[in-house]
Lab assay of single mutants.
Amino acid sequence: SEYETMLTEIMSMGYERERVVAALRASYNNPHRAVEYLLTGIPG
């Protein structure tokens, strides 16, 4: 799925699956924002 592709691409940058899933959830599946959250911390 498109979601799995995003997940895999972000994980390939060296992040753990659960952190990527949390970041995508926080960003409403916006991959650019999710990466930003992984770099700066997930808000909330």
Rank of each mutant, 00 (worst) to 15 (best):
P31V: 11
S27V: 07
P31N: 03
M13R: 05
E18N: 09
N30S: 06
V21F: 04
T5E: 12
L24E: 00
A26E: 08
S27N: 07
G41H: 11
P43K: 08
P43T: 09
M6H: 06
V35K: 09
G44M: 12
G41W: 12
E36M: 11
I10D: 00
L7E: 01
S12A: 15
M11L: 06
G14T: 01
I42D: 10
Y37S: 05
E9D: 10
E18Y: 08
R33I: 15
V20N: 00
R19A: 15
R17W: 08
A22N: 07
I42G: 10
I10Q: 00
R17L: 10
E18C: 07
R19D: 15
Y15A: 01
N29T: 03
R17D: 03
H32Q: 15
A34D: 01
S1M: 13
A26I: 09
M11V: 08
M11H: 02
R17P: 05
T8K: 15
E9C: 11
V20M: 02
Y3T: 04
A22S: 07
E16T: 12
Y37D: 02
T8M: 15
T40K: 11
V21Y: 04
Y28T: 07
A23N: 00
S12N: 14
Y3I: 06
V35G: 02
I42S: 09
N30E: 09
L39I: 13
G44L: 13
T5K: 15
A23F: 03
A34S: 02
R33E: 08
S1E: 12
V21W: 04
Y15T: 01
E4K: 07
T40A: 14
G44K: 10
T8F: 14
A34N: 01
V20L: 02
I10N: 00
G44S: 12
A34Y: 02
I10L: 14
M6N: 06
A26S: 05
T8R: 15
M11G: 02
T8P: 02
E36A: 10
I10F: 07
Y3K: 03
S12Q: 12
A26W: 08
N29A: 05
Y37M: 14
S12I: 07
Y37V: 05
R33V: 15
G14W: 04
G44C: 07
H32L: 15
M6P: 01
E18Q: 09
N30A: 04
T8E: 14
L24T: 00
T5N: 13
L24D: 00
H32T: 14
I10Y: 04
E9V: 12
L7A: 02
R17E: 07
A23G: 01
M11I: 10
L38T: 00
V20C: 04
P43N: 09
E18R: 05
I42Q: 09
P43D: 10
A23K: 01
S12H: 08
V35I: 15
E2W: 14
L7G: 00
E4N: 09
L38G: 01
P43E: 09
G14E: 02
I42L: 13
Y15W: 12
N29F: 11
S1Y: 12
P31M: 13
G41E: 11
T40G: 11
M6S: 05
E16I: 07
V21G: 03
Y37T: 04
L39V: 10
I10E: 00
N30K: 05
S1C: 11
T40M: 14
L7S: 01
S12R: 11
E16F: 04
E9L: 14
M13K: 06
M13C: 05
R25M: 12
R25N: 11
E16A: 09
M13G: 04
L39Y: 05
T40Q: 13
V21N: 04
A23E: 01
S12Y: 06
N30V: 06
P31D: 02
V20G: 01
R33S: 07
L24C: 05
Y28F: 14
E4G: 06
A22F: 05
E4V: 09
R33T: 13
R25C: 06
A26D: 06
M13N: 03
V35Y: 08
P43Q: 09
L7K: 02
G14M: 04
Y3S: 04
V35W: 06
N29I: 03
R25W: 08
Y28Q: 15
V21P: 00
A23R: 00
M13P: 01
A23W: 03
E4I: 11
L24M: 08
Y28V: 08
H32R: 11
L24G: 00
S12L: 12
G14Y: 03
R19L: 15
A26K: 06
R33H: 08
M11S: 04
G44P: 14
P31H: 08
E2P: 10
E16H: 05
H32P: 06
Y15M: 03
R19P: 07
L39M: 14
T5P: 07
G14K: 02
Y37A: 06
I42E: 11
V20W: 03
G44Q: 13
E16W: 05
T40I: 11
L7I: 15
T40P: 03
E9H: 13
L39Q: 14
R17T: 04
P31S: 06
A22G: 05
H32D: 14
E4R: 07
V35H: 05
T40F: 13
T5Y: 12
G41R: 08
N29W: 13
V20E: 00
L24H: 00
L38Q: 00
P43H: 09
L39A: 10
T5L: 13
N29Q: 06
I42R: 08
L7M: 07
V20A: 08
R33D: 08
G44R: 08
T8N: 14
L38N: 00
A23D: 01
T40E: 10
M11P: 00
A34W: 03
R33G: 06
G14N: 02
I10H: 01
Y37N: 03
V20P: 00
R25S: 10
E36Q: 13
T40S: 13
V35E: 03
E18W: 12
E9A: 14
L7Y: 02
E36W: 13
E36L: 12
G41L: 09
V20R: 00
E2F: 11
E16M: 05
R19H: 13
T8S: 14
M13H: 06
R25V: 10
S12C: 06
S27K: 02
A26L: 11
V21T: 06
L39F: 06
